[in-house]
Design a protein around this nucleic acid. Structure first.
Length: 275
DNA sequence: AAGAATCACAACCGCCGCTAA
DNA sequence: GTTAGCGGCGGTTGTGATTCT
């Protein structure tokens, strides 16, 4: 292997031997073997103890993004694409948080996907990826198309499956050369969020989240949630949230247990700002 | 067929927050 | 209270592969 990245002379002897660049098979094997026997942990000391001439950071990155046994490789599925779009519209570039909802996918992979595929489309549209125009295009054109493809794939492979609720109520003109997505399941990306509820309409004191009813804490009327959503209802209500908003959760979010305290708190803030 | 352009993705960098000394 | 070390995160770069002209 070539020795790359050797730099200034004021480094210690050990630091000067640090390797950079692509990992070799031997290095991979060493790292895997070491972690198999000792587990993950202090990455800098792990690198030293394992005899790897790499920084702890480099070892951590290699393990998390590539060597970990549960890393999922291969094309991003339609469902994953839809979920990424949905979550990015919600959280922005919080790749790590988004990755938590795509099992086996790393934040790096999602980040790369976004940069290479999604930003390409923004470029084609000659608009900024953060512009309202682009976000609307995603929300009202690409995401519905993804849903259509997902549903088409699902119906062709599983005819008995009940159709999900209609996600969008829009005609979706053919999007020229968009190569967005490839097929998969029946997630739905519709939701009624505070930003499309007027203040006067938002006085109902309940949260509608999927189909499951949950016991409600004192001083609150009712609550519907999926299994893990408000797992920590104590924490949830300790945040001092009020329920002056109707939360409607869709299958996509429910299927992935998206709604934690932070999410709902954020929505609450968005709603308050929009009032 | 060859060079240019673009894509895909692994890896690095710098910053920030946490924690233990 | 301060500081050094560390891990985590998002942004960016480098490069081999692929596609286009």
């Amino acid at each position: 292997m070539e020795q790359r990245g050797k730099v200034r002379g004021d480094y210690s002897e050990e630091e000067m031997e640090l390797r950079r660049g692509p990992w070799t098979v031997e290095e991979d094997f060493t790292l895997i073997n070491y972690i198999a026997h000792h587990g993950e942990g202090r990455w800098n000391s792990l690198a030293r103890c394992a005899g790897l001439k790499r920084t702890g950071k480099s070892c951590r990155l290699r393990w998390l993004n590539y060597l970990r046994p549960d890393v999922r490789r291969g094309n991003i599925t339609l469902e994953e694409q839809l979920l990424i779009l949905e979550l990015h519209s919600r959280w922005g570039n919080r790749w790590s948080k988004i990755a938590q909802h795509l099992p086996g996918r790393t934040d790096n992979e999602i980040k790369n996907y976004w940069r290479t595929r999604v930003q390409k489309h923004a470029k084609q549209l000659k608009c900024d990826v953060n512009s309202k125009q682009f976000k609307d295009t995603m929300r009202y054109l690409w995401m519905p198309r993804l849903v259509e493809r997902i549903q088409a794939a699902a119906s062709s492979s599983a005819p008995a499956a009940p159709p999900p609720p209609p996600p969008y109520h829009l005609n979706t003109p053919n999007s020229s050369s968009s190569s967005f997505g490839q097929p998969t399941n029946n997630m739905v990306a519709s939701q009624t969020t505070p930003d499309n509820s007027s203040a006067s309409e938002s006085t109902e004191n309940y949260a509608v989240i999927h189909n499951q009813e949950y016991s409600y804490p004192p001083n609150h009327n009712s609550c519907y949630a999926d299994q893990q959503t408000l797992t920590n209802q104590t924490d949830f209500f300790n945040q001092g949230l009020d329920f002056n908003t109707q939360w409607i959760m869709d299958d996509t979010a429910a299927a992935h247990n998206l709604w934690d305290v932070d999410d709902i708190w954020l929505l609450q803030q968005q709603f308050n700002n929009n009032v």
